[in-house]
Simulated scan of single mutants.
Amino acid sequence: MAHPRHDPLTLALHWLIALLILGAYVTSELAQGRGGPGTNLHGSLGLAVFGLSLIRILWRGLAPHPAPVPMGAWMARAAHLAHVALYVTMLLAPALGLAALWARGSEMSFLGFIPLPSPMTPDRAFSRTLKGAHELASNALVILALLHAAAAIFHQYILRDGLLERMLPRRR
């Protein structure tokens, strides 16, 4: 059965992950350099993005979907590829960041009280490689998120097809 809007859990996960990505981006500046004051907050936000993204992907396979918005085949394909790229980078960026930290020989504590000790043997060169990959994946994630938002705005105000309204909370 097709539904006109996404379900409440999908909406909550979508917007919470978006806010966490924004928070991770902002705190990345605080985390610059080894052991900066924002490192643990940045890492915790990233791990929350990772965990909630896994839940979102699993839920996506289970949740009822709204009926597809009519659009050209190329646009539907582009939307599908963009969503896949978003999900991949939402998992890859935090995983690479944590691996870079562990490869450096550091540990992290999620939310300041759940220790995540490194299972890796320290290797500074590998850590630098992982850090570069983390930054690349993170930049790709931010760019994809901005393109995703731009596409939603395009659908709302140019195509006027109601696509964005399916992801917004109901107005009373």
Rank of each mutant, 00 (worst) to 15 (best):
Leu52Ser: 02
Ser53Asn: 00
Leu54Gly: 14
Ile57Phe: 05
Ile57Ala: 07
Arg60Val: 00
Leu62Glu: 00
Pro64Trp: 08
Pro64Gln: 13
Pro64Phe: 13
Pro64Val: 11
His65Asp: 10
Ala67Ile: 07
Val69Met: 02
Val69His: 05
Val69Arg: 03
Val69Phe: 03
Met71Thr: 13
Met71Tyr: 13
Gly72Trp: 11
Ala73Val: 12
Trp74Asp: 12
Met75Val: 13
Met75Lys: 14
Ala76Phe: 07
Arg77Leu: 13
Arg77His: 12
His80Arg: 15
Leu81Phe: 06
Leu81Gly: 05
His83Asn: 03
His83Met: 01
Ala85Thr: 04
Leu86Asn: 02
Leu86Thr: 06
Leu86Trp: 02
Tyr87Pro: 08
Val88Gln: 00
Thr89His: 02
Met90Phe: 09
Leu91His: 02
Leu92Asp: 05
Ala93Ser: 08
Ala93Lys: 01
Pro94Ile: 11
Ala95Ile: 05
Ala95Cys: 03
Gly97Cys: 00
Leu98Phe: 13
Leu98Pro: 15
Ala100Phe: 03
Ala100Val: 02
Trp102Thr: 07
Trp102Pro: 08
Ala103Ile: 04
Ala103Gly: 07
Arg104Ala: 15
Gly105Arg: 08
Ser106Gly: 09
Ser106Met: 14
Met108Phe: 15
Met108Leu: 15
Ser109Gly: 11
Ser109Trp: 10
Phe110Arg: 15
Leu111Thr: 07
Leu111Tyr: 15
Gly112Asn: 02
Phe113Cys: 09
Phe113Val: 09
Phe113Pro: 08
Ile114His: 07
Ile114Pro: 08
Ile114Phe: 12
Pro115Val: 03
Pro115Ser: 07
Leu116Glu: 01
Leu116Ala: 10
Leu116Asp: 04
Leu116Cys: 05
Ser118Cys: 11
Ser118Glu: 03
Ser118Pro: 01
Pro119Val: 01
Met120Leu: 15
Pro122Trp: 11
Pro122Phe: 09
Pro122Gly: 06
Asp123Trp: 10
Asp123Thr: 09
Asp123Arg: 08
Ala125Phe: 10
Ala125Thr: 14
Ala125Arg: 11
Arg128Trp: 14
Thr129Asp: 09
Thr129Pro: 04
Leu130Phe: 05
Lys131Ser: 12
Ala133Glu: 03
His134Arg: 05
His134Asn: 09
His134Phe: 03
Glu135Lys: 08
Leu136Ala: 06
Leu136Ile: 02
Leu136Gly: 00
Leu136His: 01
Ala137Lys: 01
Ser138Met: 07
Ser138Ile: 03
Ser138Glu: 01
Asn139Leu: 07
Asn139Ser: 13
Ala140Lys: 01
Ala140Asn: 04
Leu141Ser: 06
Leu141Arg: 01
Val142His: 04
Leu144Tyr: 06
Leu144Ser: 02
Ala145Arg: 00
Ala145Trp: 00
Leu146Arg: 04
Leu147Tyr: 00
Leu147Phe: 10
His148Asp: 00
Ala149Asn: 12
Ala151Ile: 09
Ala151Met: 14
Ala151Leu: 11
Ala152Gly: 08
Ala152Tyr: 04
Phe154Arg: 14
His155Arg: 02
Gln156Thr: 03
Gln156Pro: 11
Tyr157Ser: 14
Leu159Trp: 12
Leu159Gly: 08
Arg160Leu: 07
Asp161Arg: 10
Asp161Pro: 11
Gly162Arg: 00
Gly162Ser: 03
